[in-house]
Design a binder for these strands. Sequence first.
DNA 1: GATTTCATGTAAGACGTTACATGATTCA
DNA 2: TGAATCATGTAACGTCTTACATGAAATC
Lengths: 180, 180
Amino acid sequence: MLFVALGLVAKEPGSGYDIAAFADRTVRHFWPISRSQLYTELARLEELGWVSGTKVQQDRYPNKRVYEPTPAGMAALGEWLDAEPKQQHRRGQSLIVLKTFLGAYMNPDRLADQLQEHRAQAETWRAALSAVVARLDAMDPTASRHFGRASARYGVLQAEATIAWTEEVQALLADQQTSG
Amino acid sequence: MLFVALGLVAKEPGSGYDIAAFADRTVRHFWPISRSQLYTELARLEELGWVSGTKVQQDRYPNKRVYEPTPAGMAALGEWLDAEPKQQHRRGQSLIVLKTFLGAYMNPDRLADQLQEHRAQAETWRAALSAVVARLDAMDPTASRHFGRASARYGVLQAEATIAWTEEVQALLADQQTSG
DNA sequence: GATTTCATGTAAGACGTTACATGATTCA
DNA sequence: TGAATCATGTAACGTCTTACATGAAATC
């Protein structure tokens, strides 16, 4: 995704190679991105004028192209981060984590809004899936039912983890607001 | 994905429309599939001889095509479920949930193996991400650091939820083995 | 001598979404 | 009368992965 690449450049300017290594250390667990895709995105970002690339000559290593965000790029990043995602993104879970990762470039109130929204959705999911589990518990026991129940329980635990996480981040934001 | 569609037909034979509704009630939270994709997959499955479709005439409603799995389809499903996934699938999390959902068609020992493997991976992730959190806690406090920490915390909570879930399913399997 | 690191990309293909297209019937 | 349900698909497009291609320098 274009904005993942842009966010990475914002956090850590450097060569495609460097940025790929950074992605591997950071966003990998919630938004994996392959090296080849990153190179493609960097080229797109440069065409858009959102990052600028500079050729750097090297003696002992291959020449490289070093990227940094442009003011227009930072503006585009901020706008995208602050905007409420249209309905729901396919990677809804990861999207809010990505935005939190890039929280320094966001309006804190917009981040708070989006976390609150995400938490509300997670609570809706927890309730819906808990109801599924309860319904299955009330049915005749069959092997198949147990497996259906197990997959619903996954959603419940997932939702609970998401709720707990949003609470943590909300507490962090509240803390930053009072102290800073 | 082809095997999601095949698993759905196995669990609940019916028209594409019916199966889409079933998918929406069941696998949606860990493996969303669109109606149009489902129709495509059903056509592919029929070409492969893994499901058979029968035209059903209806008076008051449009005619429909009803699908059910063939013996060859059930064999293919069982083989795919029992096989260890090659390295790691892109949707690693959800893959094991899907397999659990379809656990009735699996060899229980293979499911146990794959759950154990998944749990071990989650434990590795938890350790790695806990280390990241600890490292960030030891650093100078900056706003950016807090956000990086938050995204790592997401991974930790996620991993913990996964571990808790695998434990539940492992307990269920142990229970089925002794009682049944 | 073999492997890892540094460094960048292209090409083919799989996978998946959204929009479009159609149309009768039932229910509010 | 308008919306939802039942019913099936195509087409275009976007995204992402994997494999391929190259090659010097550093490290073990």
